[in-house]
Simulated scan of single mutants.
Amino acid sequence: MKPRNLAAILTLPKQQRFGAMAEGLQLLAEHVGTLRDDLAHLQEAQRSRGAAVIDGLASEEAAKILILLDVARMGWDDNPAVARQIKSIISHRVRGIYGRVIEGRPASFGEVRRYADSLRRSHYLDGPNDVDWIFRNVVEAEREESLYVDYVTSEGVSFWMTPASGSELRLELWPSMVIDLTLALHRLGCTSEEGLTIIADEWKGESLEDSTHWSVVEGINTAIFDRLNAAGLCSDALTASDVRLAREHWIFPLGSLELSEIKVTHADLQAQREQWLADQW
């Protein structure tokens, strides 16, 4: 048995791929929905640390749904790009980027690209003056700090970190939007084989530039949702809130973006900080 082998889908004839993907998408949606229910129980019980773990896991599983839906939006014409997209599903960083970028309301594809690039950086400066301290990648740090007790070193100072720190402050912020967005798309019928075919058909021939406006995506989403409804693919459990969430936050496809890590050294950041200090004088 070979785990994490989604790339094997590319060995199937093209006409069978959406069927295989739809099977996995249905299983993912069921898993995300179950975890969301468990999260609600933990929130009610004020079990913030357990809630953080479940929300993080459910968010990553939900992000897998968005990654696979982007495969449909890409189509099968560019095999190297599709292969890269499919393989990215195992990356915690990529899943975390997907979970974060959908929370905004970007006006253009360029905004999405710039935000995604900021989430790819291995280290960055932040603080009251934006340069005070060096932090590790925000996606990876947030994930691991909710899961593990760890002994860390930051700018020469070592100390213990625990998931107990700050989890109570986030208790009311869950579930993360990516969870509800993907469940909404599932109830709309996007995760079915016919739904994937409709998505691919509506995105066929479309290309994205940094200047591409949100209205382009909004128009395509509307066409997809209308066709899903006309085909009887929408769930009886679909709500007006689901439709609104999907319309507003199923943003630009990320399949054409480079989402690998951007290496940033401490020396680079220290030089940036020293330049900022020099500019103040």
Rank of each mutant, 00 (worst) to 15 (best):
L119D: 01
N79I: 15
K64H: 12
Y151M: 11
G96S: 06
V112K: 04
M1W: 10
V112S: 05
S59D: 03
T265K: 05
Y151R: 12
A63M: 04
D210A: 11
I86E: 00
T153M: 10
L233N: 04
L196R: 06
L39D: 03
L57R: 10
H213Y: 09
D38W: 04
V149M: 07
I199Q: 02
R227I: 04
V152P: 06
S260A: 13
H92I: 04
R121Q: 14
P80D: 07
L171H: 05
R4S: 13
I89M: 02
Q280P: 12
N79R: 15
A231P: 06
I262N: 08
L188F: 07
F252N: 03
E218F: 08
R49M: 10
F109V: 06
S48F: 08
W76Q: 14
W214K: 11
E193D: 05
W250E: 03
W203F: 14
A223D: 14
A52P: 01
P13S: 12
T197N: 11
A58Q: 03
T162L: 09
H31E: 14
T11F: 13
L42K: 03
L28H: 09
L254R: 06
W281D: 15
M1K: 10
W160S: 10
D201T: 13
G19E: 09
L245T: 01
L69N: 00
K64I: 11
D268N: 15
A237T: 12
A164Q: 13
L57N: 12
S176G: 06
E168T: 09
Y148F: 11
K14W: 10
R4W: 15
E258D: 14
I198K: 02
Q26W: 14
G232R: 02
S235E: 03
V217A: 01
I54C: 01
G33T: 02
S241K: 13
W203V: 04
N221S: 12
I134S: 02
V264P: 01
R244L: 12
P175R: 02
A278V: 10
G24I: 08
F109L: 07
Y115P: 02
V264Q: 01
L27F: 08
L57Q: 13
L277F: 14
A52C: 07
H41I: 09
R143N: 00
K87Y: 06
H186R: 06
V82Q: 01
P175C: 04
A8W: 11
S158R: 10
V217G: 00
G195P: 00
H123G: 04
S260L: 11
V149T: 11
D226P: 08
P253K: 03
E142T: 01
A231S: 14
I89K: 00
L233Y: 05
S91Y: 02
V217L: 00
L188G: 07
F135N: 05
V152W: 07
V131P: 03
N129H: 12
V243Y: 07
D126Q: 13
I224L: 07
R136D: 12
Q16P: 07
H266W: 14
Q275T: 15
I134K: 03
A72R: 00
L173T: 15
P80V: 06
L28Q: 11
I97G: 00
D279P: 09
E111G: 08
V53Q: 08
